[in-house]
Computed example of a mutant assay.
Amino acid sequence: MQAPSYQQKSFCQLRPVAVVCKIIATLACLAFLVLVDLHYPVPSYLYLWVLVAGICCWAAARAQTPDFLFVMATLVLTICSACLAQLAVAMGEPTYWLLPIGMVLSLPSATIHMRPLHYLVCSSLIWGTAYLLIQPTFVRPLDFTLTMMTMGATLLTGLAVCIAYQRVRKTVFELQQQLHALAYQDPLTGLPNRRAFLQGLEAAGAPRFFLMIDIDDFKNINDTLGHAAGDQMLIDVGKVLQATVPGHSLARLGGEEFAVAAHAADLAHAEQLAQRLVAAVHAIRMHGLVPSISLGLAERGAGEAAASWMQRADAALYEAKRRGKNRYAVDRADTPAATGSAPS
């Protein structure tokens, strides 16, 4: 089972939050528009802007990429900034509304952007739109200076919050990756473990053939050369198996047992794969030893449970060992197991 990437995980986590926030901003903008319209004449086209913002919210909810989500979210907030700025102009004294509009729309959005650059672009558009439409007038130069300082402080604060949330998400993601590796990956060989392998057997497009693999006389390797050599043997065999079965599912089930779920076209191709695996492992040289494997092959019957399927492959494996090891045996369910061995 493959874990999602950081970008995928962040996108899946942030999209619903971003969409909800944009819907709230759009509804709030509509509420303000209706309320102000009861007391002051406002341009009717602002209702059309709110409708466009609603369409952008709908598009954001269906976004499949982070960049598209960012574009839609930025459009919504920019439209809301424009609507609120126009309402401020309609009510009179719009200069007093510049800072509240910019801060309310830009600061909360700092937590829902995947990248700090996205936040800076979005926040700059919010402030720029409000400033251009309101065109504030300042009686004293100090008022202008303080306003600019407040806008800059808001941008920097939002940027710091965005970076902090990004680091938290990365830390959580790395911890999740570690937990995923512990749950689904064999720590010695780096291959998928039994849990991941069994879940893959029941996935869509499940394989037809199961290959149970066992390293011959592995206990003797541990007893003669030590467990460090035994661990290295498992690593080397795992690498050879992995290189021999590209496109198929490989896992270490535990101990010296490995398994392959093969998407072979038919039994003949599955037997060819089994033969290649036996020969590839037999070609390894380590500490003067020539390792070998025994392999059991079984084709899954229609509607057969995974446990029964694996048990038949395991029975074929022991048949291969009984007939001399360094070979494979096939369980055809209705006939005695046939065997094949690696070339000497």
Rank of each mutant, 00 (worst) to 15 (best):
G200A: 11
E299M: 14
Y47P: 08
L105Y: 02
C162L: 02
N222M: 05
C56F: 06
A342D: 06
S249V: 13
Q64H: 13
Y6F: 15
D231N: 08
L27R: 11
P187V: 00
D186V: 05
H227K: 00
Q2N: 13
A153W: 00
L188D: 00
Y96D: 14
Y318T: 08
Y328D: 13
M91R: 15
L75F: 13
F210R: 10
L99Y: 02
T95A: 14
A85S: 15
P343Y: 08
T157R: 04
Q135Y: 09
P43Y: 01
A203H: 14
T111A: 15
R15Y: 04
A306T: 15
V260L: 07
A53Q: 00
P136I: 06
S106F: 07
F138D: 08
D217P: 02
A274N: 07
Q2V: 12
S81I: 08
A229Q: 03
L182H: 04
Q232F: 02
Q199K: 11
S292I: 07
E93G: 08
M114Q: 12
V240A: 10
V36Q: 01
Q166K: 12
I79E: 01
V172W: 05
Y47G: 13
A228S: 06
I235P: 02
A3S: 13
R169K: 05
Y165T: 10
R15N: 11
S294C: 13
V42H: 00
I163M: 14
G92S: 06
Q178W: 06
P41G: 04
V19I: 10
V76K: 01
C29I: 01
S81H: 08
Y6R: 13
V168M: 10
I221P: 02
G190W: 01
H180R: 01
Q176I: 05
V121C: 11
S10Y: 00
I293N: 03
R300G: 14
P343A: 15
Y119G: 10
K321V: 08
L120T: 09
D236G: 04
E304T: 12
L48F: 11
K219F: 10
A313S: 14
D236K: 09
K321N: 07
A264D: 04
F173C: 06
E93H: 14
P94E: 06
S292F: 07
P136K: 06
